[in-house]
């Protein structure tokens, strides 16, 4: 079994086959593709005419219009380009949470990342991957080669979650490294200070990246369903533990989580960052497909 098939089953691919990953802003690619490019140039899709100016290439003159108007017009075409998508996969310790029998959040995010990679490569888009915890772990630059999917899948499979989370710091560093505007898809639980996260997202947006945050929640993290005394051992910081009776804290915990979600949602909206919340009670590809179909309609 290859790395790709370990992450994506044929059913998953079939489910994704009719979908694509749309962008809402203009992205810079290096070849033609599905996405609108900010660069104007030769393309199959006409955009507009403009008056000829000395220095313009004569091949771009619209001779038919010259015949009708007797004036020189230059034909401009919409440049269709491929997107440079970067998958930012959170590999911090908190993503390692799972109830033991099912997938961990990281596994869930990994399958979604694989699905997204497959989709983007199908669209001839370039896909890269960044895994991180408190710092960048691995950086796979965007490629649009079909064989790139294997590289991505192997990288994902070779990554195990661990270490603390510091989304703000990582994202700021990454924003500096990504020169060309593109699509940034963050797969994370976003367990960090909301202001820090928003600050980093703002940095991305300032660099004209389109940012899509796919926040992964395990149902336990929302419902806090534990009974009896529980020692919660931190997945991120060794030795950090809390010994509590969950019944005493359940209501407060849920309220705090709701507050966190609301703050993050409002911040993302303010920075024009798409935030999609995924709860692990649905298979990852199914949830992703559902999300993409909806996003496709909205785009």
């Amino acid at each position: 079994m290859t790395a790709v098939t370990r992450l994506l089953s044929p059913d998953d691919l079939r489910r994704l086959s009719n979908l694509h990953v749309p962008t809402r802003t203009r992205v810079e690619g290096f070849c033609s593709g599905l996405h609108r490019s900010p660069h104007k140039g030769f393309s199959v899709e006409f955009r507009e005419h403009r008056a000829y100016a000395p220095g313009d290439e004569l091949r771009r003159l619209d001779w038919k219009l010259f015949g009708r108007r007797d004036r020189f017009f230059i034909r401009e075409f919409e440049e269709e380009t491929n997107v440079r998508a970067m998958l930012l996969l959170d590999a911090s310790g908190s993503m390692g949470y799972g109830d033991g029998s099912e997938l961990t959040k990281f596994d869930y995010a990994a399958r979604m990342a694989a699905g997204l990679s497959w989709l983007l490569l199908q669209q001839s888009d370039a896909v890269g991957l960044v895994t991180f915890d408190t710092q960048l772990r691995q950086y796979i630059p965007p490629r649009s080669r079909p064989g790139h999917l294997k590289v991505l899948a192997e990288t994902i499979l070779n990554t195990t979650p661990g270490g603390e989370t510091s989304l703000g710091t990582v994202f700021h560093d990454l924003a500096v490294q990504l020169h060309r505007r593109g699509l940034l898809i963050i797969l994370s639980d976003c367990f960090d200070s909301v202001p820090h996260i928003l600050s980093a997202l703002a940095h991305f947006r300032h660099a004209h990246h389109e940012v899509l945050v796919l926040q992964i929640w395990h149902p336990d993290e929302l419902e806090f369903p534990f009974r009896g005394w529980v020692r919660f051992d931190s997945l991120e910081r060794a030795g950090h533990r809390q010994f509590v009776d969950p019944a005493m804290l359940r209501e407060a915990y849920q309220a705090r989580v709701r507050q966190f979600q609301e703050e993050l949602r409002r911040g993302c909206y303010r920075h024009r960052v798409d935030l999609a919340t995924f709860v692990m009670n649905r298979p990852p590809i199914e949830a992703l497909a559902s999300y993409l179909s909806g996003r496709g309609r909205r785009a």
Binding site: K105, F191, F226, V230, F232, L235
Partner: peptide, 13 residues
């Protein structure tokens, strides 16, 4: 006789 849960959302707790 407590239960040990490896937990990610420690920030809330």
């Amino acid at each position: 006789r407590f239960r040990v849960v490896p937990w990610g959302a420690m920030m809330f707790l």
